[in-house]
Design a protein around this nucleic acid. Structure first.
Lengths: 240, 240
DNA sequence: TCGACAAAGTTCGTATTACGGAATAGCCTT
DNA sequence: AAGGCTATTCCGTAATACGAACTTTGTCGA
């Protein structure tokens, strides 16, 4: 961990939380001595990521930080590509779909057709995070991502990769879809597939349905193929 | 300029330009030795801004960088685009400039070159609010904004839109600039123009001068065109 | 207009810490 | 199984970031 780098990001994070910040405020929040804050700010200004407003008003971030996020906007491209396909699916089959991407040890819901579904049983779940190990989204992602990444993530989660887990992922890969691991009382079930571009998993789709409507086997037989076709169509659109 | 900070941003910028990057590619593009790149990447990963995908695919930025951009609003982009133009203007003509945007029944001063002006007669006026009806900033905004928006704002201010007012706005539109409506005793005068993008008014500029230095007519003749050129240049820069 | 206060910014001697060449480990290809 | 390539770790060294003390600058009250 390179200290100056860590400190510079502490300053940027503190600045990102307010329209502008004075040296005193930033020093207080980051627990850094004032000269250090001044020096770091000078560097950030020189690099173009911050601007000095005035002595009293302090500093603020510039829109150059938007440039750093440029690549991240890929997520948006994925959503743009996926949305019409997902809507068509939901219109045709009725069940709501969720699109999630990996984000720091969990899947984050980026888009959903829950509002368009007649069987909409949940409020809008945007930005909600789903567990990697038990949700259909997370299990689909883990099963299809590169083995090395999977190992890293499991280690990060503090999970020992055992034979049982490996078998579960192998099963998901051969089936082409994953299911939510439900407690006995769970009423809602999910079936998840991966949106793949070669080795890379761009995101995952999950269709949610009521447990009493069909068994896992039925869900797989009926919707496995359509869901994978959907994922393939989205993948094709997403990287133009 | 703190070297490690500068280098870490070089890495992030290189990463932001591609979906993922290997150590070799990043080292090549940043002209840094590979061990340094590895060390910086480790730090970025530890901080959560980057993730290791796999040995061959390398690293990618995470969506945590979006968090840094959360505070950047459109206003900042406008200021970033405007600031250098405004400074050049003040250096050339001497008079201080103010940049304001509409904000709940008043214009809020977002940026000013008052401190850079030899004729600086006011303290820092940042965040100060100027009345819509009497300030040059406000009158420029009202005159050039869409008619429907103007009607709404006037109603909101409790002002009956009469013929006199309509004529004043028509005059501003044909002149291309507005003036402060001063009490007899006022010493400072302002001339304002709109920064436009099609129908939309992104913000307004106002140049302030001492009343005894010139009449309104003279100010309009001398500075009307340069101010509008300035506004056009800013508008062009602001939406790339 | 002045003076006291507060906060920003600078200096500089020191010790930390980042640096990078060389060695090693890890992965893929043949 | 071995070779070749690249990522990663090591470690002695020197550069450089650090921060206590000091100076400057702007604000606010009288």
């Amino acid at each position: 961990m390179i200290e100056p780098v860590s400190r510079s990001f502490a300053i940027m994070e503190a600045l990102s939380r307010r329209p502008r910040g004075t040296v005193a405020v930033l020093a207080g929040e980051t627990h850094l001595p004032r000269p250090t804050v001044v020096r770091l700010l000078k560097t950030l200004v020189e690099l173009g990521y911050a601007t000095r407003i005035s002595r009293e008003a302090g500093y603020r971030l510039t829109d150059k930080v938007l440039g750093l996020a440029q690549g991240i906007r890929f997520v948006d491209r994925l959503i743009d590509a996926a949305a019409p396909h997902m809507s068509r699916f939901t219109r045709r089959y009725g069940w709501p779909l969720y699109l999630g991407t990996i984000s720091d040890r969990a899947m984050t819901i980026r888009h959903s057709t829950a509002t368009e579904s007649p069987m909409s049983f949940e409020r809008t779940a945007l930005q909600r995070r789903s567990p990697l190990l038990s949700s259909a989204l997370g299990r689909a992602w883990l099963a299809f991502c590169p083995a090395e990444e999977r190992r890293g993530v499991l280690r990060h989660l503090g999970v020992k990769p055992d034979a049982k887990l490996a078998a579960a992922f192998a099963r998901i890969r051969s089936d082409g879809y994953a299911f939510t691991v439900l407690p006995r009382s769970g009423r809602l079930q999910g079936i998840g597939v991966a949106i793949r571009d070669g080795e890379r998993v761009m995101g995952c789709l999950s269709m949610r349905f009521i447990r009493s409507a069909m068994t896992e086997d039925e869900a797989g037989r009926r919707y496995g193929a359509p869901l994978n076709a959907l994922a393939a169509a989205i993948a094709a659109d997403a990287d133009r």
